[in-house]
Amino acid sequence: MRIAVIGAGALGSTFAALLEKAGHDVILVARGAQLAAVSASGVRLSGGFGDWRTTRLVAANRLNEPVDLALLTVKAQDAAAALHEHGAALAGTPVLVVQNGLDGVKTASDALPDSSCFGALSIIAASYLEPGSVTVTTPAMTYLGRGTGKPDAEVLRFAAVLGEAFPVQAIGNFVGAQWTKLVVNQLNALPAITGLSVQEVIGNRRLRLVMARSMREAVRAGIARGIRFGSLQGLSDRNLRLFARLPVVLGQALPLVFAARMGSVPNPGSTLQSLKRGQRTEIDFLNGAVVREARLAGFHAPVNAALTALVHEVESTGQFLSPAEVLARLPRLPR
Score class of each variant (00 low, 15 high):
residue 4 A to S: 08
residue 4 A to C: 09
residue 5 V to T: 06
residue 6 I to H: 04
residue 7 G to E: 08
residue 8 A to I: 10
residue 9 G to A: 12
residue 12 G to R: 13
residue 17 A to K: 06
residue 17 A to L: 12
residue 18 L to P: 13
residue 21 K to L: 15
residue 22 A to G: 14
residue 23 G to F: 09
residue 24 H to A: 13
residue 24 H to Y: 07
residue 25 D to K: 02
residue 26 V to G: 06
residue 26 V to T: 03
residue 30 A to Q: 10
residue 30 A to I: 05
residue 39 S to C: 13
residue 41 S to V: 09
residue 42 G to D: 05
residue 44 R to V: 04
residue 47 G to Y: 06
residue 48 G to Q: 08
residue 49 F to E: 00
residue 50 G to C: 04
residue 52 W to I: 00
residue 56 R to G: 09
residue 57 L to I: 01
residue 58 V to T: 13
residue 58 V to C: 11
residue 62 R to E: 06
residue 67 V to W: 10
residue 69 L to D: 00
residue 75 K to M: 01
residue 77 Q to D: 01
residue 78 D to P: 05
residue 83 L to K: 01
residue 86 H to S: 11
residue 91 A to T: 05
residue 95 V to E: 11
residue 98 V to T: 08
residue 101 G to L: 01
residue 102 L to A: 00
residue 103 D to Y: 06
residue 104 G to Q: 07
residue 107 T to W: 01
residue 107 T to L: 03
residue 109 S to L: 06
residue 109 S to V: 15
residue 110 D to Y: 14
residue 113 P to C: 14
residue 113 P to Y: 10
residue 115 S to P: 06
residue 116 S to E: 15
residue 117 C to I: 10
residue 118 F to H: 11
residue 119 G to K: 01
residue 119 G to Q: 04
residue 122 S to R: 07
residue 128 Y to N: 15
residue 129 L to I: 05
residue 132 G to Y: 13
residue 134 V to K: 06
residue 135 T to R: 12
residue 144 L to K: 02
residue 146 R to Y: 12
residue 147 G to F: 11
residue 150 K to E: 14
residue 150 K to G: 02
residue 158 F to H: 14
residue 159 A to V: 01
residue 160 A to N: 03
residue 161 V to E: 13
residue 162 L to M: 03
residue 166 F to V: 06
residue 166 F to P: 00
residue 171 I to T: 03
residue 171 I to L: 01
residue 172 G to F: 00
residue 173 N to S: 00
residue 177 A to S: 06
residue 178 Q to Y: 00
residue 182 L to H: 04
residue 186 Q to K: 02
residue 189 A to D: 12
residue 192 A to K: 04
residue 193 I to N: 03
residue 195 G to M: 00
residue 196 L to Q: 13
residue 197 S to C: 05
residue 198 V to C: 13
residue 200 E to S: 11
residue 200 E to D: 12
residue 201 V to P: 02
residue 202 I to N: 10
residue 204 N to C: 11
residue 206 R to W: 06
residue 210 V to A: 09
residue 211 M to S: 05
residue 211 M to Y: 04
residue 213 R to S: 02
residue 213 R to N: 02
residue 218 A to C: 09
residue 219 V to F: 05
residue 220 R to G: 01
residue 225 R to A: 13
residue 230 G to K: 03
residue 233 Q to N: 14
residue 233 Q to Y: 12
residue 234 G to W: 12
residue 238 R to A: 13
residue 240 L to T: 14
residue 241 R to P: 07
residue 244 A to V: 08
residue 244 A to W: 00
residue 245 R to N: 07
residue 245 R to Q: 14
residue 246 L to P: 00
residue 249 V to Y: 15
residue 251 G to F: 06
residue 258 F to S: 02
residue 259 A to H: 10
residue 260 A to F: 07
residue 262 M to P: 10
residue 263 G to K: 07
residue 270 S to W: 06
residue 272 L to D: 01
residue 276 K to M: 11
residue 276 K to W: 06
residue 276 K to R: 15
residue 277 R to F: 04
residue 278 G to E: 10
residue 279 Q to T: 04
residue 280 R to L: 10
residue 283 I to H: 09
residue 284 D to W: 12
residue 286 L to H: 08
residue 290 V to P: 00
residue 290 V to C: 01
residue 295 R to L: 15
residue 299 F to L: 03
residue 302 P to S: 02
residue 302 P to L: 06
residue 304 N to H: 02
residue 309 A to N: 14
residue 312 H to Y: 10
residue 315 E to L: 00
residue 315 E to T: 04
residue 317 T to C: 04
residue 319 Q to Y: 03
residue 320 F to Q: 11
residue 325 E to K: 07
residue 326 V to K: 12
residue 328 A to M: 11
residue 332 R to K: 15
residue 334 P to S: 15
